[in-house]
Design a protein around this nucleic acid. Structure first.
Lengths: 205, 205
DNA sequence: GCGTTAATTTGCACGACGTTCAAAAATCCT
DNA sequence: AGGATTTTTGAACGTCGTGCAAATTAACGC
């Protein structure tokens, strides 16, 4: 007798539909989709869980907290950016043309997926210590492309490293202000024109 | 009888210590201090209220919601930036030297108050419509300084506008990556050196 | 076959957040 | 004086990220 209230069903156990890596990929792709449509604000633990049809704690168990999810999305974004930049380089072209092509490809990538790209930079490193190694590695993979393109023009390694960092930051600034609509108040030109102006003037002989 | 629990004191009425503008200034300065110490994450409605010794609703009544508070802080930041940049210009100096001095002052300002400066760009425009006019005005006040400095070098107004926007975005990129510790992985030089490299190469005759 | 162990999945609860509502207190205006 | 207006606040609502422990399933030795 008593206990007429509820049968008290709790917990269901494994479904056997996904192994650990597949589940992480499922979570990452769903999170990326949410960010693509509504930005970082639209990415919530409960919402992400409901999209993939799981309880929030399953994400905690299989991937980690929200920061871990964002990290996975950002890692994927940097990989996609690397692929897009690689495809823009013509091995036998003039180095200056390749640099301009890289700038073009970079801004085209940002324009095609602004919110997902912004996530990489909206995410702030929690304390003030150095951030994850995979980020530095993925970033180096991208900047090394620029470094390789500039090698014939700037033979000195130290000088070239400064040029790569400066150009990378400059493109980042153009893309960042552009995606947040803070560049259009300064000039009506599309950011790609300004990027060509920046790279062209910077690499002028 | 009954009601032996509490005398039920609620609401106290005006204190007569601040008029409306003074209260807004009090809120803005307290919010700026919180952001300066802990960044945007450290700025909360309840916390801000407790710092100034008021209830959260008083802020809603006197200033508005959290977005309004952030707007006030950002307006003050842009005014301070404008003042810092103005002080860096020497009226009778070489235009190129003035441009380099402006870049130096900009990065020095960012380095001296990185979190408060970042707030200006962390704040995203809610929907996708155009953002407040005071922001465009305060920004124009700053970029017009650059425009004036470049006028002797680039007489054509359209060409100069593009140059101003490009340099502004480039400096923003350097400052942005620098404050988020994403520039030090590329090169050990301080961002100010890279800014001089950027401006110097861009304005090279 | 069965019992034990490990891995998943979940409901519930906790504390904190931004914000709204209506009540209470002080000031202002005539 | 006393009504009207402004300021201030406690309480409550809905939401969020996350921890905890129970419940269910799969895997494995025998």
């Amino acid at each position: 007798m008593a206990k007429a209230t509820k049968p008290a069903r709790r917990g269901t156990g494994p479904r056997g539909e996904h192994n650990r890596d597949e589940f992480a990929a499922l979570v990452t792709k769903a999170a990326e989709g949410l960010v693509r449509m509504e930005g970082l604000r639209g990415l919530g633990m409960r919402r992400l869980a409901s999209v993939i049809g799981y309880a929030p704690n399953s994400i905690y168990n299989g991937v980690g907290d929200l920061d871990a999810v964002v990290m996975r999305v950002n890692a994927r974004t940097l990989e996609r950016l690397h692929a897009a930049l690689t495809g823009a380089i013509l091995p036998d072209a003039d180095p200056r043309d390749n640099a301009l092509a890289l700038a073009d490809a970079y801004l085209a990538f940002v324009a095609s997926d602004p919110r997902v790209w912004s996530l990489v930079f909206e995410h702030s490193v929690a304390p003030d210590s150095a951030f994850p190694d995979w980020y530095a590695a993925a970033l180096a993979q991208a900047t090394d492309l620029v470094d390789g393109v500039l090698e014939p023009m700037i033979p000195d390694a130290g000088e070239r490293r400064q040029a790569v960092a400066t150009l990378w930051a400059g493109l980042h600034g153009l893309a960042s202000l552009s995606t947040s609509n803070k560049l259009a108040v300064l000039t009506p030109e599309p950011p790609r024109d300004l990027a060509r102006l920046l790279v062209g003037r910077f690499l002028r002989p």
